[in-house]
């Protein structure tokens, strides 16, 4: 009886393959292609690093574009902007705006350094992520970032986002 119920509920979810086009993905290729890191921490790789450890790699690989202190240079800043979101000149940075710390790892890993994405290994990435958080006064210089601690970091603007509540304009004219 239990078995029958399990079977029935599974059948409700599984739609049968209709065209049999495409091939099954192997778990290896899923592993190597899936680099998504979710706010829950799912997908974060093993490894660790602190802001102190990140200084060297940051100054060699990031500072040219984002400034030695993350203040911005050839490209935008990674730090600052606290308290500016309501002003006429909002400065949206990791520190002032980003809701999740996991996004920093996900993004740096997939896209930075701009001209050579994928260059950093997991320890180096955790270290520069820790440094960016430290530059924004969110964690201490020696706080270790890893797959468990990074999702727990509470970003200052975590509650600053609301759902799309449009239409807020566009009422009938006549």
């Amino acid at each position: 009886m239990v078995r029958l119920l399990v079977f029935l509920s599974l059948a409700a979810i599984c739609s049968a393959q209709k065209y049999h086009v495409g091939r099954p993905a192997t778990s290896d290729e899923i592993k190597s292609t899936d680099q998504f890191m979710a706010p829950s921490g799912a997908g974060l790789p093993p490894g660790k690093g602190t802001a102190a450890e990140g200084r060297d790699i940051y100054s060699r690989r990031c500072a040219r574009c984002h400034g030695a202190q993350g203040q911005g240079d050839e490209e935008g800043p990674l730090a600052g902007g606290k308290g500016t979101l309501k002003t006429a000149k909002p400065l949206k940075t990791v520190g002032s705006f980003w809701p999740y710390a996991t996004t920093i790892y996900d993004y740096v890993h997939r896209a930075m350094p701009f001209d050579n994405p994928g260059l950093l290994d997991a320890n180096q990435t955790y270290s520069v992520v820790a440094l960016i958080l430290h530059m924004n006064g969110i964690i201490g210089e020696k706080d270790e970032m890893n797959a468990l601690s990074l999702p727990k970091v509470k970003m200052p603007n975590r509650d600053g986002f609301i759902k799309d509540n449009r239409p807020d304009t566009g009422k009938k004219k006549r």
Binding site: S40, L85, K86, P99, T102, T103, Y107, I162, D164, N165
Partner: peptide
Amino acid sequence: QPNQTKDETSKYTDLLADGTARQFTF
């Protein structure tokens, strides 16, 4: 759950006058 990628948090969110931002304004 949404993955909260850089382009749906840092970018492509709409800052309002009160300092909050609308997200997933597709």
